[in-house]
């Protein structure tokens, strides 16, 4: 019982992915996306995507039908898709449900369909150029929020602690020249200390160490799972 409660209330597990295509580039990504490796997990993932697509299509279709019927405009594509018999039934259905119920519920369904179920934040380091932080948006409709900081304006990168809610969290911060506030890397996920230390070491190595010193043989795509 207690274990169940704990599992239900715990935040989603975070995984750190390290991507190093060349020696002077590293991308660290922290993600709460569940790892799908077993067959049931992959099946579940595919099914959920299909369900989302279907739900989205149905919602858009019903909204469109309602719109056309309200304005009493021709609905030729429907006739073409469904045939006359089903079209009549759909019209009756569209007639029976009113805008005031349809619109909000369609909105909710669309919101759920486009909602991203996970958060992904990354730090890309390019030696000699700078670093870019990015945070994925909460829906599939928007791209990630990114911020590029050139190497010349980076003063320091460090791990610090701060109060967040009822707890104290570690965070990785970048001091940017000419700015009063530091830039927090992974601002919404705030990974744990172990993860941050890996990223911090990598970032310092990539930014400030000379070519060929302390270079690490990272595999092309190395996965480091960090349990949360």
């Amino acid at each position: 019982m207690l274990a169940l409660l704990q599992r239900l209330t715990s935040p989603p597990a975070q995984t750190l992915y390290t991507l190093q295509p060349t020696h002077s580039t590293i991308q660290y990504t922290v993600s709460t996306r569940p790892i799908t490796q077993t067959i049931p997990a992959i099946l579940g993932y595919i099914i959920s995507v299909l369900v989302r697509v279907l739900l989205g299509l149905v919602t858009v279709l019903s909204l469109w039908t309602k719109w056309r019927t309200t304005l009493e405009q021709p609905t030729a594509p429907l006739l073409w898709i469904l045939g006359s018999d089903r079209e009549v039934r759909l019209f009756a259905l569209a007639h029976s449900c009113q805008w005031r119920y349809l619109a909000p519920s369609a909105f909710v369904v669309l919101f759920l369909v486009f909602r991203r179920g996970y958060t992904e934040e990354s730090l890309t380091l390019l030696r000699g150029l700078g670093i870019q932080t990015s945070t994925s948006s909460s829906t599939y409709l928007l791209g990630p929020t990114t911020r590029f900081i050139p190497t010349t304006s980076i003063q320091d990168i460090f791990i610090n602690e701060a109060f967040k809610g009822f707890e104290i969290r570690f965070y990785l911060a970048i001091v940017v020249e000419g700015e009063e506030d530091v830039v927090v890397v992974f601002p919404s996920l705030l990974p744990r200390r172990g993860t941050l230390e890996v990223v911090w070491r990598g970032a310092r190595r990539c930014l400030w160490e000379r070519e060929g010193v302390g270079r690490e043989r990272l595999q092309d795509r190395e996965k480091e799972s960090v349990d949360m």
């Binding site: 207690l2 409660l5 704990q6 209330t9 715990s10 009822f166 707890e167 570690f170 744990r192 200390r193 172990g194 949360m228």
Partner: peptide
Amino acid sequence: VFAPRSRID
């Protein structure tokens, strides 16, 4: 239960 020790660094 809700903020277990294992979750504190």
